[in-house]
Write a protein that binds this DNA or RNA. Structure first.
Lengths: 230, 230
DNA sequence: GCGATGACATGACAATTGTCAAGTTGTGGC
DNA sequence: GCCACAACTTGACAATTGTCATGTCATCGC
């Protein structure tokens, strides 16, 4: 059931990679593996957390339903990333819902197991704090973007994060639906379309889920430009 | 230096209140107390974290400077609340800056002390995770609000959080500057003014930093109303 | 008391974004 | 191949918000 390649991916996850070998083995041997289809729910907001989740393949979105029914995408995770750490250890309800947005492989680590290991070895706690901090940091970055950047600038940053090149041109694939990208960036799909067209003069060509960036640096300039200056 | 009343406040903080007595004593005896004037910097973004901070009195804002220079307020803390947990334990730089927005009393718990206690007793780790989770949760809530609510609705929620009444009318004091409230809610001061006037029909009167809410429930209805319906 | 300063409100205007409607395109079922 | 459907784009319009300018008011130092 648990293929070696999957275990290898799990070992590389931020949550596990800093742990000593024997702990990893124990966690892996008690973990639950599961496939999810596109659109399938992994857990629901207000549900009680019983495990930490590690994405082995595919894409997962965390989102929150406002009382009005409006959906706000909080984050999107993929291979090697984990979520639910801080909640699982405290027996509190999830503040968000999780859904597979593509077919997924997810590993679930039961929280009682994590808790008991944590009592044996405090390093585990530090490890969990590490990945929790990463989430915290990315939420803070998102808040900053939403409050201080225009839609087109947020799209520009999103594109920049898809490439690891520092300068020059490049081509990247959009990792998921434009609808989901729009949600993740806090805008409507229509606004995303317009943002893309606004990026054309800066050297961005979009074709389906394929993006061409003429010059990374000039796109970065655009993203960091103060909105007051032209 | 450390008055008993301050220690009492510290004990009630989310970070400490679930810890066993002997740990609290040790932490309190090694903590550093300091006063900050209005406008004084507590730490700067990119600075390395050396302590966890507990607010004993006054108001502190955490904010982030975008490369463009725009400031995004991430959160505002007051008496009994703590911040910097996840960062302090990992020797990583702060993702945000912290500034006193009113005269403040802050207690600093050196992170090496926390780390060593954590190795003795994993319960400390759980405690830290608990308050970290609280921050995470509030960031998620903020994201939801920014993405799914109009300015006036965010202001309505802000007012609602100032009162613990469930129904009927009430009066509350705005806890800090309108400029800071605007920043915290992700809008310009002018927009906050307009949002306040838009709340008048719903029964909200603002006079200086004093707010009168005619009926809590109808304000709540307004905040949760779908923007499509009138 | 007086002037300076900063917080705040308000009006006019521009830019951005959401909303609604229509049209295009690709995909999957049959 | 054909149909139905969902994703996506585009345009027109309305609502919201930012920007700029102006004016009021309280506070503070002198």
């Amino acid at each position: 059931m648990a293929h070696e390649t999957q275990k290898a991916i799990a070992r590389q996850s931020l949550l596990l990679k800093s742990l000593p070998e024997h702990h990893i083995d124990k966690l892996l041997s008690h973990a639950i593996w599961r496939r999810y289809d596109r659109g399938e729910t992994i857990f629901l907001q207000e549900e009680e957390a019983k495990a930490v989740h590690v994405v082995l393949a595919g894409w997962v979105k965390l989102f929150r339903m406002a009382p009005t029914g409006a959906e706000a995408v909080v984050s999107v995770f993929t291979r090697g990333e984990s979520f639910g750490e801080a909640v699982a250890l405290r027996n509190v309800p999830y503040p968000v819902s999780a859904e597979a947005v593509s077919p997924c492989e997810i590993m679930h680590i039961p929280s009682p197991l994590l808790l008991s290991l944590m009592r044996e070895d405090p390093e585990i706690g530090v490890s969990i704090l590490a990945s929790t901090f990463t989430h915290l940091h990315s939420l803070v970055a998102q808040l900053e973007q939403l409050k201080a950047q225009t839609g087109a600038q947020r799209v520009a940053e999103f594109l920049l994060n898809l490439s690891d090149k520092v300068s020059g041109g490049c081509e990247v694939e959009l990792p998921y639906d434009k609808m989901l990208i729009a949600g993740r960036l806090g805008m409507k799909p229509e606004s995303l379309s317009r943002a893309f067209s606004r990026l054309k003069p800066v050297g961005v060509k979009i074709n389906r889920n394929h993006a061409e960036i003429a010059d990374i640096q000039s796109l970065r300039d655009y993203a960091e430009r103060d909105s007051s200056e032209k």
